[in-house]
Design a protein around this nucleic acid. Structure first.
Length: 516
DNA sequence: AGGGGTGCTTGAGCACAGGT
DNA sequence: ACCTGTGCTCAAGCACCCCT
């Protein structure tokens, strides 16, 4: 729930603005498509992006991302029919500066972006991208129909970063697929529209896969390593390989089209095909974290850093984002052949955690020392007021983490969460609940609820505006005046009247523990 | 009405000068 | 050495006008 529900009006305004950028902006070169794509990528690659906060993105990070996005574009495009072989122009005038410098690097036998970063060509390429961004696209992206409209970030040229306005980063995360799809399509059309390119591209071409396709060749480097690390067993079914190994993108390539070294697992062809573009279940995700980001982190980094980006933080951030979106959309997660599980209700967000007593700077210097594990924390929803009075509107936005206090017993981050009581209707009986008390609740569904008789539950209903309202009450089965059985919602405080459950209400969570 | 020529505007590349 | 600002050039898009 964290990060995924920016204000609905803002979401609509965001979508509308992105559409306008692509339709009303003037495009002579393709930089602005790349910039939009770069910002979207960075928003999902960063850990700790909060819903309503602004997000600073360093110009340097954008420049690196731009180089990454243009890397493939700087290779000569071959038209198989005509035999022509040349660089596609990405500017209506002279060739784009970024393409020119990357092309020069490739002509000097730099074969990957990782190699470029370690080479003497890096500085020049990086500066070209940075200068290009700062002289134009950063301040032109938000010029719509000749008018400057700073919806995404203010135009402040002094600091070395742009600052996405509150909620914008969350919108980029929520609508990542859409933004990338739209910007890449517009990018593709722009390249096709440049007259110089038309002779080269011809009437139909494989331009899209050339520009935005994956580098399949590099996967050959991954297979033997992963087969070895996985002890010749399929990542998903744990059964041995029989000449049927395929490399799977754990976070599907269709969802995130940058190859990250930690994102690969070896799987049976059948398992991989059956998984298709689904996210794997939480169980698989835990195993992936344990295997690729903890146990084999260093080996993967040393063996594959020449071919792929190797940031464990980036991988975990992308995985968090992908699972957040899945949960928000109630998507199914693939577990095994033709078997799926729910992504809702609450997926634990994984973060790296230091070993107890370890110094902070070790994270930077020695990643093998980092252990990835579920923090002993649960979600806390400060905006979710569980009413102890009358139904009260609240929402699940702005989730935070809260340490699990001692003595609460066994909890599951998939089910349990914290929220505050609001009001005094449950202030009575043996264990009164006061306004502001912390409640440990367990999410329930009609299927998982079991008998609720004599339990304290949070009930949810929708108000006339469509917002959710919540109320905490004891449940008791009773008989109404017509002799029909019904459920009474009883307040511990006798000053509050007993309500009868109706069809507009649903049980949302049961009270597991009341913490003062 | 439609085609072609002209001039203006815009976004981008590039060279250069001056400041830090 | 690096950054920043300025001015020039170029190609494309567009509006306008004129001619057929």
């Amino acid at each position: 729930m964290k990060d995924i529900k920016p204000n609905e009006k803002l979401q609509l305004a965001f979508i509308s603005f992105i559409q306008r950028v692509l339709s009303e902006g003037d495009f002579v070169a393709t930089y602005k498509y790349a910039l939009l794509n770069a910002i979207a990528d960075i928003c999902i690659e960063k850990l700790d992006v909060s819903t309503n906060e602004s997000l600073k993105i360093e110009h340097s990070l954008l420049a690196e991302k731009i180089l990454q996005l243009y890397w493939h574009h700087a290779m000569p495009f071959s038209n198989l029919k005509s035999g022509a072989d040349a660089l596609l122009k990405q500017n209506s005038g002279a060739q784009s500066k970024v393409i020119s410098v990357l092309y020069e690097c490739q002509q000097n036998n730099i074969r990957s972006l990782g190699q470029l970063k370690r080479s003497s060509y890096w500085n020049e390429s990086y500066r070209a991208a940075l200068n290009t961004l700062k002289t134009g696209p950063l301040w032109r992206l938000q010029i719509l129909a000749k008018q400057e409209e700073c919806f995404l970030y203010p135009h402040n040229k002094k600091p070395q970063y742009i600052e996405l306005k509150p909620g914008i980063a969350a919108c980029f995360r929520r609508f990542y697929d859409l933004v990338v799809y739209l910007s890449k399509n517009a990018w593709l059309q722009k390249i096709q529209s440049i007259k110089y390119n038309q002779a080269l591209i011809g009437p139909q071409s494989k331009l899209e896969s050339f520009l935005f396709g994956e580098d399949r060749q590099s996967l050959a480097k991954v297979k033997p390593l992963l087969v070895d690390l996985q002890k010749n067993q399929c990542f998903y079914c744990q059964k041995p390989f029989k000449n049927d190994v395929e490399i799977d993108h754990f976070i599907p390539f269709s969802r995130y089209s940058n190859d990250l070294a930690h994102n690969f697992v070896a799987a049976h062809r059948r398992c991989n095909n059956n998984k298709r573009d689904f996210l794997a279940s939480y169980e698989h995700r835990d195993n992936w974290i344990e295997s690729n980001l903890v146990k084999h982190n260093q080996v993967i980094e040393s063996e594959l850093s020449s071919y792929f980006d190797c940031s464990a933080d980036q991988s975990i951030a992308v995985s968090n984002w992908a699972y957040e979106v899945a949960r928000s959309n109630h998507a199914k997660l693939w577990h095994s052949i033709d078997t799926f599980v729910d992504s809702a209700p609450i997926a634990p967000v994984l973060t790296f955690k230091k070993k107890h007593g370890e110094r902070e700077d070790k994270i930077e210097t020695n990643k093998t020392e980092i252990i990835a594990e579920l923090e002993p924390q649960l979600y806390y929803f400060p905006n979710l007021k569980i009413a102890c009075g009358h139904f009260k509107t609240g929402d699940e936005s702005d989730a935070e983490y809260m340490d699990i206090p001692d003595g609460v017993g066994k909890v599951d981050p998939n089910k349990h969460f914290f929220a505050r009581a609001s009001g005094n209707s449950m202030n009575g009986g043996k264990s009164p609940i006061f306004d502001g008390d912390l409640l440990l609740l367990e999410f329930i569904t009609p299927e998982s609820a079991g008998s609720l008789q004599n339990q304290t539950v949070a009930i949810e209903r929708l108000d006339s505006a469509g917002d959710s309202q919540y109320l905490l009450r004891d449940i008791k089965k009773a008989t109404d005046e017509n002799g029909n059985s019904c459920y009474q919602l009883i307040a511990k405080n006798p000053d509050y009247e007993t309500l009868v459950a109706d069809e507009s209400m649903k049980t949302f969570a049961r009270l597991k523990k009341h913490l003062c």
